[in-house]
């Protein structure tokens, strides 16, 4: 089930704010993210989930510690190299505002190529359109984001994330704005990416029902990883969350 590590994070610390008013968002976090695995990051609000995701995805730099993609150490990269790494190796699905409003659905899906000044090969393009078809986007390709429902927008974001065949997809609360049925569809699509494309998917969520889809669940509390468990059902996860909330 689990592949080799795609990302190795070691002793990550993140401190926000000026001296005297520091917030330790992450304390000494070490974790491996493996391929073909849906990893959920759970924890109470303000526990450091998003911060961890930002560091793993090269969106932000740690105060100390290292993030390795294979042998590439993120802190040694320039902003430009980091941007190119995100463009080529990482897919993103955010909670809201995933799409560029001036572009059509198809243009949004192909945007990473456009940004890199490249074009997918004919075969690659076919493949992308197949994924779009699986996501039910074919009738929507010429629409613009404001003409889509929230669930449709998330599916476009997933298609864009898949399009570059990334090593890893990060999804921050991707179901946060969706009704539960649409949310389940989105989660199923993310899960199938790990099965069919051997991708690592990192899912940040505070929702036990969403985390129950994961092969592995990391619990964060107060900037530390406090539990690291395999596939777990939603009610057990809820209890664990409640326990953590009580401990705070």
């Amino acid at each position: 089930m689990s592949g080799s590590p795609v990302i190795r994070a070691r002793s990550l610390n993140k401190v926000y704010g000026a001296q005297g008013a520091e917030v330790h968002a992450l304390r000494d976090v070490s974790v491996d993210i493996t391929g073909s695995t849906l990893t959920a990051i759970m924890g109470p609000s303000g526990s450091g989930k998003s911060t961890l995701m930002h560091l793993l995805a090269g969106l932000d730099r740690p105060t100390s510690g290292t993030v390795l993609y294979d042998d590439l150490e993120l802190s040694s990269l320039s902003d430009r190299q980091l941007t190119s790494l995100r463009r080529n190796l990482i897919g993103f699905v955010f909670q809201a505002f995933n799409l560029v409003p001036t572009l059509t659905v198809l243009e949004n899906v192909l945007l990473p190529f456009e940004l890199g000044g490249t074009k997918p090969s004919g075969e690659h393009r076919e493949w992308i359109l197949e994924r779009a078809a699986e996501l039910g986007l074919m009738p929507l390709l010429e629409r613009r984001p404001h003409q889509l429902s929230g669930g449709q927008q998330q599916r476009v974001a997933i298609a864009r994330a898949l399009a570059i065949r990334p090593r890893v997809i990060f999804a921050d609360e991707p179901t946060g704005n969706l009704d539960s049925r649409t949310g389940v569809e989105v989660l199923a699509m993310l899960e199938s990416a790990t099965r069919e494309q051997d991708q690592a998917v990192v899912l940040v969520t505070h929702d036990p029902a969403a985390a129950a889809w994961a092969d592995r669940v990391l619990f964060i509390s107060d900037g530390r990883i406090v539990h690291d468990v395999g596939r777990t059902d939603a009610s057990t996860l809820s209890e664990m969350v409640l326990e953590l909330g009580g401990a705070r």
Partner: peptide, 10 residues
């Protein structure tokens, strides 16, 4: 968003 998915500063 554009920066996240790969637009460079330049």
């Amino acid at each position: 968003l554009l920066r996240a998915i790969g637009l460079e500063r330049r």
